[in-house]
Each structure stands twice: as structure tokens, then as C-alpha cells.
Write a protein that binds this DNA or RNA. Structure first.
Lengths: 164, 164
DNA sequence: TATTGTTATACTCTATAACTATA
DNA sequence: TATAGTTATAGAGTATAACAATA
């Protein structure tokens, strides 16, 4: 299924409208790729709505989260992990850096590489943003119980990081 | 998580590179929204690679599939079901119509609406495209067994079409 | 007054190739 | 010769508002 649009609707908006319901019995509606795409669209809409109050987009939030971790990722690692082109990472970090949330530090072991690290302000922003994202995920994924979310996490992890 | 890019890599490309592996233990990597986004990116890449030989994009394939069904969707229904803006549906159908795969028919019950129906050529193309898409899904979702795919379908359906 | 399809436009995201500095 | 980051740019996707025809 295609990349679905990031709607600006809030997580509480009604999402399956009457028109779409009539199509819910088609073969497409049972297709795993389609359901994955639509579920993702719902999830992104919820996360974007939650992050808007912090002036963050979901993409920047992901980078900030990885920078706020102790993992000290290089830009190349971020690109691979987030499945973005390295050239896209540049702008993403430029903006986070301009807002004082992350810094580029030289990698002592490879002078070509730059490590992305969160500043104190970045960690604070991440903590704040994370709370609203978690809240939005409760709305979004709360239709599943704890065990179901565990099962889903396991299944998705295997799809997201297929063994080579 | 952000909309992830549609890579033009084939489904058999190695997807979890060495760089990304180091980040696989971060909090982000266990986040449902992130895994959903990344699994979707993997799935889309596989489907796009499969559809390229038919000159179709995954978005057009979805519309064609729904038109080839007996469901006779209106453009508005397609928009809601696929979570696209109605204005995007126009160009999508324009192209499918120009290639002779679908036609816009007047809805006898509402003269504002247009029903999208597949032509014979459209149904043939859909049948052909479907075979390669199914094959690509085997590659993509084949890491799960039958039962796991069933469970995943159920869980995703509830996320994709949350009760109102 | 509201809805369907359409057009137009601005904006964001994505893909690609080239360049620099290091390895 | 290959890799990390960067720049530039063209193309695809997305969001928004307005319009004519119809309800």
C-alpha cells in the first residue's frame, strides 16, 4: 500500500468513516500490507498531533530520542536505523541543533564521522515530548490489551528488522 | 515515527545494516509506533519493487484492486478508505483511466458522485500485478508463519479501523 | 446549507548525484 | 578505493482552499 498521508486530525477523530466502511469487506481490506500502511497512518496522525504542541515533527522526535539515549549514534547510523537517506539526516539535525537540542561531536575514533548527542535542553524537551507521545500511543494502541501489544511488538520487530 | 522513505531497494536487500544494529537496544527500537513505521517501510519497498515491472505504483494498485472488486467505490469512498485527500484521488484515477484500466461511471443514485470501475484490461492488469505483489508479500511476511500472520492481521485491523 | 469531484498552489518529503574530508 | 557528511536539485507526495454541479 502507498505511503499514507499524515492527516492533521487528532487521535480522537473518527477515523473509519461511513464511506470507507462499505469497503471493509474487500480483499484489499484483509491484505497485510494494506493494514500495516493504514495502521501506520493512524499512528502517525496521533503522534504528530501530540508533538505539534512542542513544535516537533515525528521525524525529529525520533532523532532526539536516539540522541537522548546513551547510544551516541553517528549520522550514518541514524540514517540506516530510520531508513532515511543520509542527506535527509543533515537537515533534520540542523534544525534540532539550531534549537539547541542536539550537538554534533567529532567521533574520536573516526574523524569523518560525527556523533549526535542531546544537550541538557534536548533531554528536557525529549522527556516532555515523550510524555505526550506516550499519552497519544495509549489512545492509539489502547484498543489492544497488554498481552496483545507484546505480541504485536514481537511480530512487527521481526518484520521491521528481518534477519539477513 | 516519521513517514519512512520508500527505498528502491529490492525485498531481498539486506535491510538491517551494521550501523543500525547497534541502535537495536534503544528505547525507540521497542516503540510500537516506530516498529509499525519501519515494518511498513520494509513492506512498501517490497511492494514497489514488485509493481515496478507493471508500471504501477502501490497507490494506483490499491485503487485498481478496489475498482476490480465488485464494490464499485465512489471517489470519496476511496479517499476515506485509503486515507487520502479527495483531491489526490483525482490524479490517481486520471492516470489509471488514461491507461484504460478504470472508468468513471455516473452514480445512478447520486449525480454528484462518480463510481470507479475497472475495465476488462484493468482486471487483467490487476490479476497480473496481484501475482507479483503476493509473491513479494511472501518474501516480506514469510518470516512469520501462517498463524502469526493471522494474529498480526487481526491486531492490525483493530488499529487500522478503530471502533468509533 | 452541505457534499462530490475538481483545480490550483504551496509546501514537505524523497531520490539522486556530486563534492570534501577523511579512512 | 571506499566511506561520512554535505550540498543541490528534481521529482513525488501532501495539505489547503476555492469552485461548479448537485443534494
Amino acid at each position: 500500500m502507498g505511503r499514507m498521508p499524515t492527516s492533521s486530525t487528532t487521535a480522537t477523530d473518527d477515523i473509519a468513516h461511513s464511506g470507507a466502511e462499505r469497503l471493509a469487506d474487500t480483499a484489499v481490506a484483509g491484505d497485510l500490507a494494506f493494514l500495516l500502511a493504514r495502521a501506520n497512518a493512524v499512528s502517525i496522525a496521533a503522534a504528530n498531533a501530540a508533538l505539534a504542541e512542542h513544535g516537533l515533527k515525528v521525524r525529529q522526535y525520533s532523532v532526539l530520542a536516539l540522541a537522548a539515549d546513551q547510544s551516541r549514534p553517528s549520522q550514518r547510523e541514524l540514517a540506516e536505523f530510520l531508513r532515511l537517506d543520509p542527506s535527509q539526516i543533515v537537515a533534520l539535525i540542523d534544525e534540532l541543533e539550531a534549537r539547541g537540542f542536539v550537538v554534533r561531536e567529532p567521533d574520536p575514533t573516526d574523524r569523518r564521522a560525527k556523533v549526535v548527542a542531546a544537550t541538557a535542553a534536548g533531554r528536557r524537551m525529549y522527556a516532555k515530548a515523550r510524555r505526550t507521545v506516550v499519552a497519544s500511543e495509549v489512545e492509539c494502541f489502547g484498543v489492544l490489551n497488554d498481552q496483545e501489544r507484546c505480541v504485536l511488538t514481537d511480530l512487527l520487530r521481526r518484520l521491521a528488522f528481518p534477519a539477513r
